[in-house]
């Protein structure tokens, strides 16, 4: 009984924390982007413009929830739900601190990969169900980009899994007691980070959205709360990817002095700010460049990383 209560409390704490973080991060992103571009960003509402997110939320709630008459209605409605479900589900396996984890699965990493693969459906179905050319183009790009980057994403993590000897995230964190995996697994980290940017389709790899060419890509036809779900899904996805990088490569909650949760949050927030820094810095690559880079650079790098890690582990074990 107390176990159930405890896990319920954990679930709600994680859910609330993640959604608040994701929602509040929209403000952080706007302020940071403004900082990089020598502007101020939202600074009117509340201290430092902190309530801007609340105002945006109220506004988006008031918007008409509209389904275009030419859209495939059930799929159109389903698509934004999918992205929220998959990203929130992958949040379940993340260990924020010892004991503060919703489901400490022994296949944690695989679960994360599976959920991010399922997330592709959301974008693809949204593009398809919208029944308009820009949305379809965005959906097509999303499928190609996310499916191919999924491959390296998985492969880049296998080095970590080999070194830790487990798919369980708490085990992986425990295995980084002496040395964070970001040092021996640096190529894996680089590939995973780039693949993570592509998976959450954040700028500069935001080809499915690409507002300069495709209006808004796969969510061109969406408005109101459904659009908000996509937006929030993207931010939660960013949080999850950052949290995964922290867990797998930066020693998770480990750190001196401060409590483990704080360390985890600090590291995650730092990585999320890195996402924004990338967005402020780089232009979007062309579509074929993206694919070329993926298959001709990232795939060999991750395979090489995998082989070398395996060889080193084999020699050491022998």
């Amino acid at each position: 009984m107390s176990d159930t209560a405890r896990s319920l409390v954990t679930i709600f704490a994680v859910l609330l924390g993640a959604l608040t973080l994701a929602g509040g991060f929209i403000w952080v992103e706007r302020r940071l982007l403004a900082l990089f571009q020598e502007r101020w960003g939202p600074n009117r509402l509340g201290p430092l413009g902190l309530f801007q997110g609340v105002a945006d939320m109220i506004k988006i709630f008031m918007k008409e929830d509209w389904v275009p008459p030419f859209a495939d209605k059930p799929v159109f409605v389903l698509a934004p739900m999918l992205i929220m479900v998959t990203t929130l589900a992958s949040l379940a396996i993340i260990a924020f601190a010892p004991g503060l984890v919703v489901a400490d699965l022994n296949i944690g990493v695989l679960f994360f990969l599976a959920m991010s693969s399922l997330g592709v459906y959301s974008v693809a179905l949204a593009g398809w169900a919208s029944n308009s050319k820009y949305a379809l183009l965005g959906g097509m790009r999303a499928v190609a980009q996310m499916l191919s980057y999924e491959v390296f994403m998985g492969l880049s993590l296998m080095g970590v899994v080999m070194m830790a000897g487990s798919f369980r995230l708490t085990d992986i964190v425990a295995a980084q007691k002496s040395l964070w995996f970001c040092i021996p697994q640096l190529p894996g980290l680089a590939v995973f980070f780039i693949a993570g940017v592509a998976e959450t389709h954040r700028s500069p790899l935001d080809l499915p959205e690409a507002e300069n060419e495709l209006v808004a890509g796969y969510h061109t036809e969406y408005s109101g709360m459904k659009f908000a779900l996509f937006l929030l899904g993207e931010y939660v996805g960013m949080t999850v990817v950052s949290a995964m990088i922290v867990t797998l490569f930066f020693g998770g909650w480990a750190g001196p002095l401060l409590p483990p949760v704080v360390w985890f949050l600090v590291k995650t927030l730092f990585l999320m700010c890195l996402f924004i820094w990338l967005r402020a810095s780089f232009p979007r690559p062309r579509y074929d460049q993206l694919m070329l880079f993926g298959w001709k650079v990232l795939l060999p790098v991750s395979l090489l990383n995998l082989a070398v890690t395996g060889a080193v582990l084999l020699v050491r074990g022998a």
Binding site: F36, E38, W277, A280, S281, F282
Partner: peptide, 22 residues
């Protein structure tokens, strides 16, 4: 050049902001 770009953008974070707060 990618890292150079990152560095340039980071430097711009410490430049005086141009917005006139109307």
């Amino acid at each position: 050049s990618l890292f150079k770009g990152l560095w340039i953008v980071l430097r711009h974070a410490f430049v005086k902001r141009v917005t006139v707060e109307y």
